[in-house]
Design a protein around this nucleic acid. Structure first.
Lengths: 215, 215
DNA sequence: GCTAGACTAGACAGGTCGGTCTAATCAGGC
DNA sequence: GCCTGATTAGACCGACCTGTCTAGTCTAGC
């Protein structure tokens, strides 16, 4: 009974962790819990999925969950924080291939396109989690952090591109980003990301033209 | 004990109903249930709010709920259908004041602005309900119907305005609409509707210019 | 007055929820 | 060997869930 039980969600040895340094074999309870939470919470919703489902899927005892995270809400927070870094990292990596700020801005929607086409895309995790949770909780805090960082990236790139009101313009791009997440899920239509990218290009060019005319 | 119990969510005598024709006094159990469901489901979520909360708020017996609707899911469906008609009616009424299709298209976002500024706006009811419910259920069906009708309205107006690919263009406006609903809730920022309207105007003008150039 | 149907209050069933706790097992350092 | 700390399985708690059922009350039409 070394490999505990069965399924084991672990895709690979994760990067960091207090009790799992490099390659080796068995991920820590924390990592397995996070992987199970990520899969189940995202697929079925943080409210629908109970603690028992998570620990069963992780192959971990209930006490380990409460020793590690303390509460379900803390586990939800950790799940959202993991999404936060993974999505923003994915965007950052993709944007490296471009030089111009305009291409980088459009590149954000290319990442969306890839995410929407993933086999089990179920919409933005933050939109879903906050829709299920009461306001003022951890889900809202995690969403605020994610949204602020994404919008700051958009504003930064818009400023580099030479758009006058970069902060205001970032709000418009964020509208398209959110709309894409919603549309892709509710209409079961991954191709909406291409439409969003087109609309973003139109808005960028119009903003650039206006900024140039004002200068 | 004529007025049953207390609170009574009834704002006014509703338009139609099997046992409540015009003014008079006490709304039917069905109407009180729908009003309570609308308030509680929207405020706290269809999953979070239990049947007991609904019947208590409606001042109605549990048996009345199950005699009238049959199940909680059917009540959720009725709640969403009510939202469907009320939102689209509100849009239709507002658009009557405009003549040109372009103004009507922008008018949709003016209705959004008013909704976002309502004291207890909590986001799009359909986005929230589908995020809480499993796919393939009544919430998804109700959302599909709502979204199809809204998009058809946008496509119709876009065609009238002279935009070449009206169907495709409606998808872009729908992106802004969805993005506005999400942003207004998650950023607690009603003013995003004005941003959405500006972006819509930019997209409309660009599409008109492209359609004119192609002709 | 009488009847039919809508409505009432509330117990009840069977299940799941988040969270606590006990007791046993395991691995590694001394 | 022995101890320590992490981990295990699973019973248990009180609360809440949807849905059913019993039994009694109110009211409108005849």
């Amino acid at each position: 009974m070394v490999a505990t039980k069965k399924d084991a969600v672990n895709d690979a040895a994760n990067t960091a962790g207090p009790a799992n340094t490099a390659s080796s074999a068995k991920p820590s309870a924390r990592e397995r819990l996070l992987a199970a939470a990520d899969e189940l919470f995202y697929r079925e919703g943080v409210h629908t999925v109970g603690i028992d489902r998570v620990i069963e899927h992780a192959g971990v005892a209930k006490a380990s969950l409460y020793n590690t995270f303390g509460s379900k809400e803390a586990l939800i927070r950790a799940y959202l924080d993991k999404r936060h870094t993974s999505v923003l990292d994915r965007i950052a990596v993709h944007l490296e291939r471009y030089d111009s700020p305009r291409e980088k801005l459009l590149g954000i929607f290319e990442v969306q396109s890839a995410m929407f086409s993933a086999p089990r895309y179920r919409g933005c995790a933050f939109i879903a989690a906050t829709a299920e949770s009461e306001s003022g909780g951890q889900a809202e805090a995690a969403s605020d952090a994610f949204r602020a960082e994404l919008r700051a990236l958009m504003a930064d790139l818009a400023a580099q591109a030479g758009i006058a009101d970069a902060q205001g313009f970032a709000r418009k791009l964020h509208l398209l980003y959110d709309g894409g997440s919603v549309s892709a899920r509710m209409d079961r239509d991954p191709s909406i990301a291409i439409v969003a990218r087109e609309a973003a290009a139109t808005l960028i060019d119009a903003a650039l033209a206006a900024s140039a005319a004002a200068a």
